[in-house]
Design a protein around this nucleic acid. Structure first.
Lengths: 126, 126
DNA sequence: CCTCTTATTGCAACTAGGTTGCAAATATAG
DNA sequence: CTATATTTGCAACCTAGTTGCAATAAGAGG
């Protein structure tokens, strides 16, 4: 870990993820820190967290980028994936703990798989 | 099927999908028809095709929207999904014919699932 | 605790995908 | 052939995300 300085901004962004296990979109995070830092800074800090393996990213239903804390990202190297869930009502996103086997495809080399489940979350199920 | 007029533009866009089974991003389609129609028109025609069930859409690796011809979209109603593949080298996208079971998630109602596999396609595998 | 180097930040401008409102054009029912 | 409702072009707009550069501030080493 050569670079990565402990700036005020870095600490603030990390705190959000440290406090809960929710996934956050960049849009939310920019909004959340408006006033204390520039949106470019948020983007760059998130990029760094991702490179450092502290956060993983995935795309939500509208192609928006979401970030969530990594628990065992590097451990099970690309054999299984954990899918993500997004609620069609409230938009909330969750990491699911179940594993999904990546299917084999003839004449293709699969490196990575993304699975997004859409529906209603527990709170929106009435 | 109340609306949907057979205009020149509608015919041109449909021809592209009719000729091959490839998936196309909106960006490609807009580029392809630049000169003969406006980008807004392309977007709107694709929207209509989707609503009419002629095309299905999904998001590629950068959150770009892709369109592909529907073969049996309405037949197997949300029990299985067919995943999509995108090549990390050339960017090409394919519909895969394999079925993936949608996992059950406690206290959630799953309506839909998207799976995107990433890697190298047959042509890019050397 | 000071200094120097280098990472980080703010800002403003920019890119790209996608959308909207409205007037003009054009399918098609009758 | 006409009337009407759909479709189109255009220009302006929106939002997510990026870039270049000068200013700022960690923190390593003295």
């Amino acid at each position: 870990m050569i670079s990565s300085r402990q700036t005020q901004s870095v600490r603030l962004v990390w705190e959000v993820f440290d406090r809960s296990d929710t996934a956050y979109s960049v849009v939310e995070l920019v909004q959340m820190h408006k006033g204390s830092m520039n949106k470019t800074t948020v983007y760059r800090i998130l990029d760094r967290f991702e490179k450092e393996g502290k956060l993983h990213t995935f795309l939500g239903k509208n192609g928006l980028k979401w970030y969530a804390k990594c628990h065992n990202c590097s451990s099970k190297k690309h054999i299984d994936i954990h899918p993500h869930f997004q609620c069609n009502e409230c938009g909330k996103v969750e990491c699911l703990t179940i594993d999904v086997k990546i299917p084999k495809v003839a004449k293709h080399h699969i490196e990575q798989a993304n699975m997004l489940l859409l529906g209603q979350c527990d709170e929106c199920l009435i």
